[in-house]
Design a protein around this nucleic acid. Structure first.
Lengths: 219, 219, 219, 219
DNA sequence: CATGAATGAGTCTTCATTCAT
DNA sequence: GATGAATGAAGACTCATTCAT
């Protein structure tokens, strides 16, 4: 009975080994990308960093682009997790609180691996497979729009798609700037940053409202 | 001293020729960057495209990075021209009109050479010399802040630097997205895009104001 | 000894399986060789095509060369079958008829797997083990000479070895050209091709004879 | 006046250098091909053998195939020279003498660089550019046919194209075999080989003639 | 015996940069 | 100064072969 199903554990053993190799490679890719930049991230260096032969790398990824694409996909999957969770938690809250929480989630997402995020944003060419980079933004767009749709009575915008796009793009860019480039203005003070962006969104989505208390706490 | 006089025109002639060669090289760099991407933009290819020998290229630029940096600088100089002009024209206008015109200027700036702009944004590594890329944003920041400073009584923000940074960053990102990536939402309708961004800024800078007429034309 | 009996059928069963695996591998080798060419015919690809693991491939063949050599040997064995059969059938016929039939057999042999034949002829390096490629020609030489020897009175040549070599070489080359490269001249018309080659042989082996009727059918 | 045309000598100097490099590379290619075989003839090895950097190799040849193709072309050009010369010399001679001389020319051609010829015949893949390999055979075909056309009254064949193809193919193959593979039969005796092949051709082109004296000298 | 993951030397090719002319 | 031939390090990728499971 001990020898009953020798094939399955074996296969699963090698599957485990494969998966481990793939993860190791992705980790190494991230490391090399961050430390040396995209141009210096050669497949040989990545393999060496991973403690794996180049041959193995090419067993799992047909080319360098695919390797980076897989890393991007993995990274985006993690971020998406965060964002989805945040949107779910926020579904029943009022607009101002919701926006604040979503901005906070955006900051958290950018803090997952800022250095890697910067490389993706600045150096990785957007071609072929890598169109997937944008999939995260697309998903974020959809999540945001569905929230705004549900709360349509609280907001006053003419074109939901346009408004969503503007909110998502602005939040992404501002968060990126805040987390990745740490500008002097805003520097460091995370809550104030979140305050400001929330105000930006609220002023846009609910124009004409008196500035809400949240933004006047210190007045 | 006797040879001083003939030397000057000669030198200036050769300076003119030098300048022409440099311009030709920068043009070629832009062309190659746009058509082949950063990775395929080799100095040999650029020199050939410019109709100049590689040797000559290295006469004027110590390395590839310097060449690209010079192109970035030239591009930024042009954009800055536009932006400076717009800010000057807008100095005495009321906030809403001013913001609208500045957003329009941002769009115009991105339309100068969108393909090149995209390459700069997406593929060119930010190292060494190329820090200069940010100089444009820095200058834009200063111009914007000086305008807002002058009009401090019209706006209600606590921290001018922070507010400026937020406005500039948001406008840049949104314009980039609109011009470079042409999202479905907003697609094509330039004036509506400018409307929306202006509303975003106004809602942020003048919270509590009833939405101004410009944005209610269709009511 | 008690285990002797069950071992034999088992062994023979596994021998049968072994043989099947070997055949599958050779088939796959042929397929890959024809479709991808010698250079792209990697052992991994061949194993995969055969639906067998690389490891198993190396169980049966010590290296790539041996694998190809075995395929060549198998192919030659088939051709030899044809040729031997033809020579046997022709043993008692007069020279002209015999030559005609042998040429026809040569054509048939080249038609067994022309694509593979071409690869062998054009791409496979002749080294080590692969000297065996020539064994077919050697055997053909011997068969032809034994026929000519038997019919020595019908022919007029000084040096039988030389004449045999010339006939065999010429027939091989012409048939190869006709089947594999399909030249414009001669194209397609198999019987006319056989006529012509037969005339070539007869003119050589029986010089001074009036052109025989076979070749004057259309006169 | 000494400085009158500085550009031309300079350019021609570098042109001379270029040409020299190309020749060196082709020589090295031939050497490596012959000594190591097609598969081991890597561009790096060829460049090293030529005493030239790989970079230079790729300055003149876009890839390995083109390099080999150029060598084939150069080799064929030499052979063609020989063959053209022979055909010209033979134009006014009677058939038997002409054929004898042409066969002799074929042998000479194969003796130009037998080892290289063998590599071309046996190992070089026939793809793309390399179709040029056959250009030699095509040219030989045309030269032969034009001769036979001129001497149409001496020969009796129904289809000139077919007959030409057969003669050319047979001569090529037999000569190749004789020079390259040196079969035991015929071995070494060049004149006897030429005799035999000439007889083969004559028996085919002039059937029914009594074997001519040339082939009976030793009787 | 079978499997297929792993290996790493070796291949083709590109490119920034130098330097003799 | 201009030219463009030459350089060679380095990168992407392949493949015959081995070996732990």
């Amino acid at each position: 009975m001990a020898r009953a199903i020798p094939t399955i554990p074996r296969k699963s053993a090698s599957q485990k080994r494969s998966k481990a190799t793939v993860e190791t490679l992705l980790d190494a890719t991230a490391r090399v990308l961050v430390r040396q930049g995209y141009d210096r991230a050669s497949t040989n260096r990545i393999a060496e960093t991973a403690g794996v032969s180049v041959g193995s790398l090419y067993q799992y990824f047909p080319n360098k682009e695919a390797l980076v694409a897989a890393l991007v996909a993995r990274h985006n999957r993690e971020l998406l997790e965060l964002v989805r969770h945040a949107v779910k938690k926020v579904a029943s809250l009022d607009l101002a609180t919701a926006m604040r929480e979503l901005v906070r989630a955006a900051v958290d997402a950018h803090l997952v691996d800022p250095a890697l995020h910067r490389i993706f944003a600045e150096q990785v060419p957007r071609m072929g497979q890598l169109a997937k980079i944008e999939s995260l933004q697309q998903e974020a767009f959809l999540l945001m729009r569905s929230y705004l749709e549900e709360h349509g009575d609280e907001i006053s915008v003419r074109d939901l798609d346009a408004a969503t796009k503007i909110c998502v793009t602005a939040v992404e860019a501002l968060t990126h700037e805040f987390v990745i480039n740490k500008p002097d203005a805003l520097a460091g003070d995370r809550d104030r940053f979140i305050d400001e962006v929330t105000r930006l969104l609220m002023g846009y989505l609910m124009p004409g409202r008196v500035p809400d208390e949240q933004n006047r706490r210190r007045t």
